[in-house]
Design a protein around this nucleic acid. Structure first.
Lengths: 124, 124
DNA sequence: CTGGATGCAAAGGTTTTGCACGCTA
DNA sequence: TAGCGTGCAAAACCTTTGCATCCAG
């Protein structure tokens, strides 16, 4: 199973890199402007392949479709509960964020930390 | 708009408190054992009302339905990427978790930190 | 050439919603 | 008694999938 580079994948990745944490549908709309023949199914398939390979991040939130992030280096996310927009928070902002409950202009109401990995049962 | 206490809400909250991060459907099944006449729509409606009031937590993950948590005190979550189960991680385990990449028997592959709050645009 | 990738459309599963009735406060 | 809550079923929504065809390596 060798992955192939197709023009669809390139367009999707290029558009994602220029977008700001888009949902799959927002990305689909932007991709269609580049090439109207690309299908919705392909966008979902390619995004999920990228996410599986660790090339991009898939962000899931309550009450909104998943958003995607092409940024490679480690960072945290700040999400507006009113508009759903997602902002990046980098390492050097983290301590001030916890102290002042704000990340730049973004006002923090709450924080959540999630680990992912392998549970004892699944080690078998 | 005054919230009312109904037996459906009580059952749902009671069952949630005794469950381990169930999905809405798992909770629905457990609730039906207590009272088979409660409908799926009510379970979703009540859970979302609880979550909105901050009485419970709604946890969203990629590639699986949302899970719910009735625990009130602050803690982190560790999610198994194989079975989807969610484990609680408390304050006193956090430092060891980062150092050893494990929370008890749970092996940590990656961590993500999310803030939620209000963005500059929505302050208007 | 080979088999992964795509487009299309239909299916899937979760969550929401409209409506009439029931029940709490 | 007023109006929030409920049950039911249909709808909405995001996402996945089957299949025939296409095309990158």
């Amino acid at each position: 199973m060798t992955l192939r580079n197709t023009k669809q994948k390139k367009i999707i990745m290029d558009v994602l890199r220029c977008s700001d944490h888009p949902t799959a549908s927002e990305l689909y709309a932007a991709v269609r402007e580049e090439n109207p023949s690309i299908s919705r199914g392909t966008v979902f398939r390619v995004l999920s392949q990228f996410a599986q390979n660790g090339e991009i991040l898939k962000l899931s939130f309550a009450d909104s479709p998943a958003r995607f992030d092409a940024r490679l280096c480690a960072h945290a996310h700040a999400r507006c509960i009113y508009c759903g927009k997602v902002f990046d928070v980098f390492d050097d902002e983290l301590s001030p964020a916890f102290e002042k409950r704000r990340a730049g202009e973004f006002e923090i109401y709450s924080a959540s930390l999630e680990f992912s990995g392998c549970c004892p049962d699944c080690k078998a």
